[in-house]
Structures are given as structure tokens and as C-alpha cells.
């Protein structure tokens, strides 16, 4: 607890120091705005720039990407599980895809899908897909043999075996992948919004920066950081809730 308070106190002290240095003219106020101005800009961003509506827009894109990730990621993972040959042929490709800088091809997505929310969602989806596939596969492969035998003893057919035994058993691991995929998707979605100047929170930062509204830009960045922290914490909480099912 003492350590936590110290950490926060150091951050506050650094902000106070920066404020002092700017007021003393040692840091250029046109480069770094006063921390007090940044704080004061937050209500303005909320009211005038409709930050909550923008947050909603970004979240809509994240939810759309999440739905695609759940459907295609889990299906592909299950397909790899069903076909060991396909798995051996493609698993390392999915690994390489995870390492590939997907977001760099955003101009390509712009050409295909136009400057629209679809481009943003598709990039988020493409960036988040590999961990969902690989973790789904990992979860299914790790299903305990005894559970599969129980299913067989009840004469479950293939579909029932998958829905009643394999999927529930693999769910905690699948969620680990889904969470990773969602985080990748969100990072890319906000990033592309900024880059193509379209959509929710990312666009807001771009607009404020282009207007040279420095306190607003810093305030909006703070808001995005806060959003990612909350998003990160919420998925972590969900993951912990799922864990006892193991």
C-alpha cells in the first residue's frame, strides 16, 4: 500500500515539477502544455468534443471485430483440431502471421474497403485473429482424455461431443486467446482511426493535434490510455471469472 501511494505521489510530484518548470519558462509551453491546463481540458473534451459518443463509436468497432474474431477464430481453431494434416501444414503460417505487422497494410484495406468503419474493423480483426486460432487449438488439444471418453460412453455424436465436451473444456484457454486478440484488435482500431482520421477516439486525437489544441490533445491521449486500462482490466476480470471452470 505504501509503495502504491509512493508511486502515485511520484507521478503527482513529476506533474507539479513540470508545471513549475513551464511557469518558470524552462520548458516551452508551446511544446508541453501546463498539466493544470490538461486537467482543465478534460471537461471541455467531454462536453464539446463528445468524447463519450466517440468512445461508443470505437467500442462498436471493437465489438464488431470481437464478433468476427469469435466466429472465425474459434472456427478455424476447431478446423485445425479436426484436421491434423491441415494443422501441420498451416499452424506455423498462423504463427508467422502473428509476427507480421498487419496494421502496416492499412492503405491496402483503404483501397479495398474505402475510408470507412469497415476498414478499421477488418484491420482489428486481421490483427487479432492469430492468437484466437492458436489458443482455441491449444485448448481443444489439451482436453482431458477422460472427458472425451465420458462423451463417447454417452454415445454423443460429433457435434454433441464438440458442443458439450470439447468447447466447455477448452473455454478458459480459448478466452486467453480471445482476450489477447481483443487487445490487439483494440490497439489497431484506435491506431488506424488516428492514421486515417476516421471514427472515434483515434480521430479525436488527430483532430485536436491538427487544430494545435495541445492541452486537448494531451487530455484526449489521457482518455485513450484510461480507456485501454479499463478495457484491459475488464477482460482480465472476465478471464479470472472463467478460470474456476478449469
Amino acid at each position: 500500500m505504501v509503495a502504491r501511494i509512493t508511486g502515485i505521489a511520484v507521478v503527482v510530484a513529476v506533474c507539479a515539477l513540470v508545471e513549475g518548470l513551464i511557469r518558470a519558462g524552462l520548458i516551452n509551453a508551446y511544446v508541453v502544455p501546463l498539466p493544470s491546463q490538461i486537467l482543465a481540458s478534460i471537461p471541455r473534451i467531454v462536453v464539446e468534443e463528445h468524447v463519450l459518443a466517440r468512445f461508443g463509436q470505437t467500442m462498436q468497432e471493437v465489438v464488431a471485430a470481437a464478433a468476427l474474431l469469435a466466429v472465425f477464430g474459434i472456427s478455424l481453431g476447431a478446423l485445425f483440431y479436426k484436421s491434423p494434416l491441415l494443422r501441420r501444414a498451416c499452424e506455423s503460417w498462423v504463427g508467422a502471421w502473428a509476427a507480421a505487422p498487419i496494421v502496416l497494410v492499412y492503405p491496402l484495406f483503404l483501397v479495398i474497403f474505402g475510408r470507412s468503419a469497415t476498414t478499421i474493423v477488418m484491420i482489428g480483426f486481421a490483427a487479432g485473429l492469430p492468437p484466437v486460432i492458436l489458443k482455441t487449438l491449444e485448448g481443444l488439444v489439451a482436453t482431458r482424455r477422460v472427458l472425451l471418453d465420458v462423451g463417447r460412453s454417452f454415445r454423443l455424436d460429433g457435434r454433441q461431443q464438440f458442443a458439450k465436451i470439447l468447447l466447455p473444456a477448452a473455454l478458459p484457454t480459448i478466452f486467453v486467446g480471445f482476450r489477447l486478440g481483443l487487445i490487439f484488435a483494440m490497439i489497431n482500431i484506435v491506431g488506424v482511426e488516428f492514421l486515417i482520421n476516421f471514427g472515434g477516439l483515434g480521430q479525436l486525437i488527430n483532430e485536436l493535434a491538427e487544430r494545435y489544441d495541445l492541452p486537448g490533445t494531451y487530455g484526449a491521449i489521457l482518455f485513450v490510455v484510461l480507456t485501454s486500462v479499463l478495457f484491459f482490466a475488464a477482460t482480465e476480470w472476465l478471464e479470472r471469472r472463467l478460470r474456476p471452470m478449469r
Binding site: 509503495a3 508511486g7 507521478v11 488516428f194 486525437i205 485536436l208 493535434a209 490533445t217 491521449i221 490510455v225
Partner: peptide, 23 residues
Amino acid sequence: LSDAFESFLHYLGPTPKIIFFPV
């Protein structure tokens, strides 16, 4: 130090870094 500051790393780690570009 870890208790005091490491959580900041974990918070800032998953934020999209490109948004810091204007700064």
C-alpha cells in the same frame, strides 16, 4: 519499486502507442 511503479508499465503497455505521435 516494483510495487510502486510496475502497474504503470502494465497499464501503458497495451495502449496504442501511435496516439503519442502528435506529442
